[in-house]
Design a protein around this nucleic acid. Sequence first.
DNA 1: AAACAAACCTGTGCGC
DNA 2: TGCGCACAGGTTTGTT
Length: 277
Amino acid sequence: MPELPEVETVRRGLDAAVLGRRIDRVEVGRERTVRRTSREALIAGLQNTAIVRTWRRGKYLIADLDSGDSVMIHLRMSGRLLLAQRGSPRPPHSHVVMGMQDIEVRFVDPRTFGEVVVFDPERTADQVPELQRLGVDPIADPFDQRVLAAALAGTTRGIKSVLLDQTRVAGLGNIYTDEVLHRARLRYDRPADALRRSDIGRLAEAITEVLTAAIDAGGSTLADTQYVDMEGRTGSFQESHLVYARRDEPCLTCGRSTIRRAVVSGRSTFFCPRCQK
DNA sequence: AAACAAACCTGTGCGC
DNA sequence: TGCGCACAGGTTTGTT
């Protein structure tokens, strides 16, 4: 569910709500959420620490603790991080709860693909290896046409599949990849290494513009209302979607074709056959 | 190297 | 109302 803009929105909410507050209670209701280590390791790692900084790389949210450790949170498909008053009714699937005096942060995740893990930043390579393998983050890192060209180099794969590859560009998922490719007027199956300089220029610009606008809008909340920020508020960037989930609806760019659906890397892919070449 | 499928889970919406 | 199926924002692993 959540891609870079949603994770960034959650990160900002976490920053505003809990920075410097001491974690005095930790509960793990479902061990699968902490499967990388264990219930005991998560509790020991969080108990009596305070979050001193939050940061994000791609879809990975990291909070640095005053103990010197860090906690990595990945929402995967259905994870949410919710802020609540201590003692208020907990939603189903509240697998991890971090209590800070009168408030608590709840990791809620029906599908249980998400995870929470405390790790030692000096042992990232052993404990959270995928973090080091992430490619350029278009928001957190310097990003322009040259950086993108380097990230796309050396593969004949279709551009959508390459943009979804987190080791090349970190943070784009199924929604934003389709929205970006539409704005750059590129079809999902254009071989990445055959893109012209002008194509890559438009693509880099589209990535920056779409992600920035989506962050400003607080992310995208689809019809099922799965994604909300820490305060439970929905995002509004779905109102700016031009192609995602708009199969058979008129193209908002050209008005002369309808949005088609294809399957790429096993994912639903939406595009305008007239605008995107 | 690349393209697919399956796996991990639960929930929802749809056609019948 | 109930049942079965398709499908869902992600990532990893294994197979052609």
